[in-house]
């Protein structure tokens, strides 16, 4: 393989004039993490609500929850990204659309909202599965004690369901983190985008991608370790 390796490239100044290539990747990493965390807040909140809707003893509530999940699961994330970024501003009243298009950091906000709602459909699926995995009697016991439906969910069903689904939620979080890279198509300068830019500027393809790869693997390991700690922390004695 006649490829000119140059591992020192990371310490060369990038043509953007704001630091070295290493700084460039670092700023990409920060955007990746910030985007993933913000999107996760939306995904967790919306996903929990939709997941709960699907377990309520009400046909309309279930229909709304199911429709949400089907809609967001059956359209590729990249297409959803384009819909939020290119299509939504055109469908809104003109002044709103203009405001949206001129928003600084528009790719970031779009990525957060798009990923948030997309991941919510996957979180919803897990939350529903977690609640339905609980014995039917748990809901009855809460109800029989006089708890309202909302209280039964808040104090009995959800705390148990979240514990059960912690492992799948961890992998959804990781998927969410990896999916931030799809936002490079709308101009988010996240880690993969920065690695790609470094490759274009420096022609050191494999150094750039190797660095990005190692960073992704480290993040994965950190998240998995953290999830393990949380799991132990919230584990219920005797189970």
């Amino acid at each position: 393989m006649n490829y000119n390796w140059n591992w020192g490239i990371f310490f060369d100044a990038s043509p953007e004039g704001t630091g070295t290539y290493a700084d460039m990747l670092l700023s990409g990493l920060i955007w990746t993490i910030v985007t993933a965390l913000c999107a996760w807040v939306i995904a967790f909140a919306v996903g929990s609500v939709i997941g709960v809707l699907r377990t309520l003893p009400s046909r309309p509530a279930q229909a709304v929850g199911n429709a949400y999940v089907e809609l967001f699961r059956n359209i590729p994330l990249l297409v959803q990204m384009f819909l939020w970024f290119f299509v939504l501003p055109e469908l809104l009243p003109e002044s709103w659309g203009t405001w949206l298009k001129q928003l600084p950091n528009a790719p970031f906000y779009t990525a957060v909202v798009c990923l948030g709602f997309f991941t919510a459909s996957r979180v919803a699926e897990q939350v529903r599965a977690g609640i339905q995995a609980l014995p039917r009697g748990q809901r009855m016991a809460g109800t029989a004690l006089g708890l309202t439906t909302a209280q039964t969910y808040r104090y009995v069903l959800l705390p148990n369901a979240y514990r059960i689904i912690l492992p799948p939620l961890t992998s959804e979080f990781l998927n969410n983190l990896k999916n931030t890279s799809v936002a490079l198509t709308i101009g988010l300068l996240e880690l993969t985008a920065r690695a790609r830019a470094m490759q274009e500027f420096s022609f050191q393809v494999f150094e750039a991608f190797t660095a990005a790869t190692i960073i992704y693997i480290i993040i994965n390991l950190l998240v998995v370790t953290a999830a393990g700690l949380i799991e132990r922390r919230v584990a219920v004695p005797g189970r």
Binding site: M1, K178, S181, T192, A195, R196, Q199, F209, A212
Partner: peptide, 25 residues
């Protein structure tokens, strides 16, 4: 575990640049 840690977009870039070299080799 390696493949599952990486975003598909990055893997697409990887192979796009790597495959010509592997073919050469």
């Amino acid at each position: 575990n390696f493949m599952r840690s990486l975003p598909l977009v990055l893997v697409i870039f990887w192979f796009y640049f790597l495959v010509p070299y592997i073919g050469q080799w």
